[in-house]
Design a protein around this nucleic acid. Structure first.
Length: 328
DNA sequence: ATGGTTTTTACTGCGTC
DNA sequence: GACGCGGTAAAAACCAT
């Protein structure tokens, strides 16, 4: 940013958004503003002397020790601050938290007395406690953001997001996270939550909005489900029907038809071992034919992410099941 | 790792508009 | 001739063992 020394600038309300700013500003003796005779304040952060009342910038000679660029809120400010140790992403807290050495030596290398040693033990213990708690908070915050992002990308309702967050929290509390990425676990939580809520999304759809490989999602999902004892029934083909139907602009009648087709199939036990998505897609396609609504296999395959071949196979089976029911 | 099952890919033929 | 549909064989993916 070109720090043009304009003669009179006015800064209002742009000031201290965080604690640190408090210390940088202090009263500037008995000087008063040439404009309004208000108090002058030295703002070391920006190297300016400004009027407390009217915001007039009187002097801006001193060195700017503040953050690199302008910041519009506290978070951004922190990010752009020049101070602090270099951060690393390899540690859960980016290496910014306090570490207490395990050696019982003081700064000069002398051994500590027994009282001091005890004190250090207590400090270590508590420091550790706070540190891990903090890391969990941070972890959670990031995960929740991620969950929200994916959920809205998938058009999932808020109750699913909440379920996902709850699952995530549980995973976090049970220490399921170490060794797994936040991304992966939050994705798995979304997947699980969507299924539990009866609005399942296929692994492929999930993988599309996640930064994690499908394989890892599946693995993490199984792990989370197992460890948390989550009960997730195998996805019911019917739960896919509404989404596909509306994606194809089909009538309610067709949708209803698809459901009854599926129920029939269920009774005949046609659906064991087959992918529920395929069945649902086939049912939707068949229903569209039966209600004389225009659809193509290609269209269904597109909205359901299932190959046309599979749709054909399934929908033959569906119709067969329908006939045998009619005969029986 | 392996074998069995399901799904996908790729290709072909048929009928219709 | 392009399109929708049906079928097939081989490859790939998936799953339980």
């Amino acid at each position: 940013m070109t720090n043009a020394p304009s003669s009179t600038r006015v800064r209002r309300n742009e000031r201290q958004t965080d604690e640190q700013a408090d210390e940088r500003e202090h009263e500037h003796g008995d000087l008063s503003c040439p404009e309004c005779t208000g108090h002058l304040i030295v703002d070391d952060e920006h190297g300016e002397t400004i009027c407390e009342d009217c915001g007039l910038v009187v002097d801006e000679k001193s060195v700017d020790r503040g953050p690199e660029w302008r910041a519009f809120d506290a978070a951004e400010k922190n990010k752009k601050s020049r101070v602090g140790a270099p951060t690393t992403n390899t540690m859960h807290d980016k290496g910014l938290s306090t570490n207490i050495d395990w050696r019982n030596k003081d700064a000069y290398g002398n051994s500590l007395g027994s009282r001091q040693r005890e004190k250090m033990q207590r400090l270590r213990k508590w420091n550790e406690r706070f540190r891990t708690r903090d890391s969990k908070e941070r972890n959670l915050k990031q995960a929740l953001g991620e969950i929200d992002r994916m959920a809205s990308a998938l058009g999932l309702p808020t109750n699913v997001r909440e379920t996902a967050s709850v699952i995530y929290r549980r995973a976090l509390n049970e220490d399921l996270l170490p060794g797994r990425s936040i991304e992966g676990v939050s994705t798995a939580c979304v997947y699980a939550a969507a299924r539990q809520a009866g609005v399942p999304r296929s692994l492929d759809e999930i993988a599309d909005v996640s930064r994690v490989e499908k394989n890892e999602i599946a693995r993490t999902y199984r792990y989370v489900v197992r460890e948390l004892g989550l009960e997730v029934q195998p996805a019911d083909p019917e739960s896919y029907v509404p989404r596909f139907a509306s994606g194809l602009d089909l009538s309610d009648e067709a949708e209803h038809r698809a459901r009854s087709l599926l129920q029939n199939a269920k009774e005949k036990g046609v659906h064991s071992g087959k992918s529920p998505v395929g069945l649902a897609a086939a049912a939707v396609y068949a229903a569209a034919l039966l209600t004389n609504e225009k659809t193509t296999q290609a269209a269904v395959s597109d909205v359901a992410d299932i190959s046309e071949v599979t749709i054909r196979n399934r929908y033959h089976e569906l119709l067969e099941a329908e006939e045998t029911i009619g005969v029986a």
